[in-house]
């Protein structure tokens, strides 16, 4: 099984920081995710949106990295949302109960606008 190195791009839209995750989310993605989180929150955003549209394989270590982001977001009271998850990974987010704390939207517009509301668990 081959893996794709993770890259995380940060852009801003309507006061919201969008972190676009590209590649596989595993232990090797930690530094890319940390740097993206720092860049996204340097100037306090209204919310952070994680885009999984271009992400690939996510293993349990990758899920743990997302938990780390959630913890940081909660500590700084920044709402965090996600979109672009496949049905498979939506289920994984439900099993791991990340979905209790993160609004999962269908597309970027909905995620940026926070149409589904934010969750605090």
């Amino acid at each position: 099984m081959t893996t794709r190195e993770a890259v995380a791009h940060v852009r801003r839209r309507d006061g919201v920081a969008v972190i676009e995750l590209v590649g596989d989310l595993n232990a090797a993605a930690e530094s890319a995710l940390d740097e993206a989180w720092t860049a996204a929150t340097n100037t306090r955003p209204d919310a952070v949106v994680l885009s999984f549209e271009n992400s690939g394989y996510i293993n349990s270590t990758g899920i743990a990295l997302v938990v780390g982001l959630l913890a940081s977001a909660r500590a700084h009271r920044i709402p965090i949302r996600a979109y672009g998850l496949t049905d498979h990974y939506r289920k994984i987010f439900e099993i791991t109960r990340l979905a209790d704390f993160m609004a999962i939207e269908n597309d970027e517009d909905s995620a940026v606008q926070g149409i589904g509301g934010d969750k605090d668990g």
Partner: peptide, 27 residues
């Protein structure tokens, strides 16, 4: 699982995402 990036797949491409999303279903 083999570590290391796949040279055939450029960063940013999502061509193999369906396979990526399902290849771990049993895990």
């Amino acid at each position: 699982m083999t570590n290391g990036s796949n040279d055939d797949t450029p960063a940013g491409s999502n061509d193999d995402m369906p396979a990526a999303a399902t290849r771990d279903a049993a895990n």
